[in-house]
């Protein structure tokens, strides 16, 4: 499949990219690794008039120890994050999850910024960042702003990013222990049918993959844990209030069931790892 024609511009800086984006935000798309956008363009499900290639903007590929948190440049590839010593040491959940995205070839191209900005509820990294209570650093014509992960993922393929904004950095609190991740799929290369990222550090944050229109928290489980419930009882409430999709890989009912099993396993991992 061949994409429809478009105008290609290669940005040398965030400012340049934002300038081009501002010219016609609705028909302009940012291209980083391209592993969310190009597949859609090949199937002609996306036909942007202008592609702004931000992939070569210098200074946006880093995993940095910033004291109480870790800062990750938006152009950091999944593979870079997976093997980053900083990530492995301070946010091993994120390093681990980066190593679970797609397949090795995808991880050599796909970026964390692209994955988060795409806002796909079936993606792994949004759940990890949500469980880590991350912060998105967003640049735009109105300047820089920070958006909490909890406010970033708004709906199906919809984020807090305005059409003229660009995600440039992700910040996550350090969480060297007390994490678990479960990805359930039929083939290793596929998106999760259901996935769970859990962080248990004092309080517990449990984020779910593919359990709704966007990545979201298992609030009922978190509340139960806060109220002192044991893991099994808390996990049994993982799907409460959620309306997961039905598709070829699983019905909504099955997804609800999977969520309870996988949340329990992720929490068991998290608490075992913490001990």
């Amino acid at each position: 499949m061949i994409p429809a024609s478009f105008e290609y511009r290669r940005a040398g800086s965030v400012e340049e990219a934002l300038g081009w984006l501002a010219e016609d935000p609705d028909s302009t798309k940012l291209l980083a690794g391209g592993h969310s956008l190009l597949p859609l363009m090949k199937l002609r499900l996306a036909t942007p008039g202008v592609l702004v290639d931000v992939g070569r903007i210098p200074g946006l590929n880093y995993v940095r120890d910033d004291g109480d948190h870790v800062a990750i440049g938006a152009l950091t590839r999944h593979r870079d994050l997976e093997v980053s010593d900083v990530a492995r040491g301070h946010v091993p959940l994120l390093a681990h999850v980066a190593g679970q995205v797609g397949d090795p070839q995808v991880r050599h191209r796909g970026t964390i910024g692209g994955s988060l900005a795409h806002g796909d509820p079936a993606s792994d990294l949004p759940a990890a960042v949500l469980a880590l209570d991350g912060t998105m650093v967003v640049d735009g014509p109105r300047g820089r702003r920070e958006v909490q992960a909890a406010d970033f993922f708004r709906g199906f393929l919809e984020t807090a990013l305005a059409p003229d904004e660009m995600l440039t950095e992700v910040r996550v609190h350090k969480a060297p222990a007390g994490w678990g991740f479960q990805k359930f799929n039929r083939r290793a290369q596929d998106w999760a049918i259901v996935g769970v990222a859990a962080v248990v550090n004092g309080d517990a944050r449990v984020a779910l993959v593919n359990m709704g229109p966007t990545t979201l928290r298992a609030r009922a489980t978190e509340e139960a844990l806060d109220a002192g419930a044991n893991i099994a009882d808390a996990a049994a409430r993982a799907a409460e209030g959620l309306d997961p999709p039905s598709d070829l890989n699983g019905s909504a009912e099955y997804r609800r069931h999977l969520a309870t099993v996988l949340v329990r396993r992720a929490l068991e991992e998290a608490t075992a790892a913490r001990g």
């Binding site: 039929r186 083939r187 290793a188 290369q189 596929d190 070829l248």
Partner: peptide, 10 residues
């Protein structure tokens, strides 16, 4: 992505 030909991992 929908028609699941197994890979080596399966």
């Amino acid at each position: 992505t929908d028609y699941l030909v197994p890979a080596a991992s399966e």
